[in-house]
């Protein structure tokens, strides 16, 4: 299904924090060439950074995967990050996601900002709330046999800050 996109990146890496900024820089360069828009490229790289930070934090095995697909006419960027996680982390993630999707993007983002500041465990899903609001992304999750896939579908035209 994904191969219908002729512009894509598929990358597999060990869950090491030191690789994250390298991947972000690569994605930013790749997207700058693809979209010919440095700011949009930087925002997509930010989304990728947040997703792979989560993968590195919560992966309990080697081999996190990053897939980026650009749809026809470059209108949607689909970022998929997959990693293996413990059942406890999956349960925590599902609880956080239910809360996240229970509110409009800006409300959820502001609530996550406040909650994260007093949360010691770093499992606030602030990164997902950020992608959802700042990149206007639709977030989907697929959890199967301990593998967690988080997909962010980012429209390249609906950009900027809502003045709600």
């Amino acid at each position: 299904m994904q191969k219908e996109s002729k512009i894509y990146v598929e990358l597999k890496f060990g869950p090491k924090w030191t690789y994250i900024s390298t991947v972000r820089t690569f994605v930013e360069d790749f997207m700058t060439i693809t979209l010919e828009d440095k700011k949009k490229a930087t925002s997509i790289a930010m989304a990728v950074n947040e997703l792979i930070e989560n993968a590195v934090k919560f992966s309990d095995l080697e081999g996190s995967e990053l897939n980026i697909y650009v749809t026809k006419e470059r209108k949607i960027i689909k970022v998929i990050v997959t990693n293996h996680a413990s059942q406890q982390d999956i349960d925590d993630l599902q609880k956080c996601l239910r809360e996240l999707f229970g509110s409009p993007p800006l409300d959820a983002y502001m609530k996550r900002m406040k909650d994260s500041a007093v949360s010691p465990d770093g499992k606030s899903t602030l990164g997902l709330a950020r992608i959802r609001y700042e990149c206007k992304a639709e977030i989907h999750t697929n959890i199967e046999n301990g593998m967690v896939s988080i997909t962010a579908e980012i429209p390249t035209e609906k950009w900027g800050v809502d003045h709600e």
Binding site: M46, E53, R130
Partner: peptide, 11 residues
């Protein structure tokens, strides 16, 4: 660049 953990720190 600032990641979401950096935003958390600012907050």
């Amino acid at each position: 660049y600032v990641n979401s953990s950096g935003i958390k720190t600012m907050i």
